[in-house]
Amino acid sequence: MRVRKLIYLLWATAVFLAACGGSGKMEVTNAWGRTSPAAAANGAFYMTITNNTGQDDKLLSASAAACATVELHEMYMRENDVMGMRQVPDGYIPLPKGQTVELKVGGLHVMCINKQQEFMIGDTIPLTLQFEKAGTMEVTAEIRDSAEMPANMPGMQHGGG
């Protein structure tokens, strides 16, 4: 009888801890980069980051041996499908708890500046991600020739016929 009570207690504690989010993780999936010639000075990496840690966090920076410098950048659209790129405000990507942030074509990306090598399809590029609270994480970006294409961007004309 006593043992059973103890088990209940342990179980309740576990549930409580899980609810706190203490056992959750920062999850990074689908890390990839686009094939790019040696003549291209820069490249981009994309990934999906889900913050299950139970607390707000930030992706502060990233590094890779394949890149002289790595910065976090975002694309923006101006009037009339003019696209531009800039470093994200304050240099970091906010990762609110419980949310998934997608780094994708036409949006946020990890920018590989002064690429040290050609990126060929099938190559795997190791990246180190630095989170403010979750610490560092090693991920591997697979080089592909395409994203799953992004959904057509809003506000654009289509099918003029």
Binding site: T35, A39, C112, S146
Partner: peptide, 17 residues
């Protein structure tokens, strides 16, 4: 332009395909 890491290579890769 060749410095462009996202939109240009994306479009050119699509056109290559």
């Amino acid at each position: 332009y060749t410095f462009c890491p996202d939109v240009c290579p994306g479009t050119l890769a699509d056109l290559g395909y």
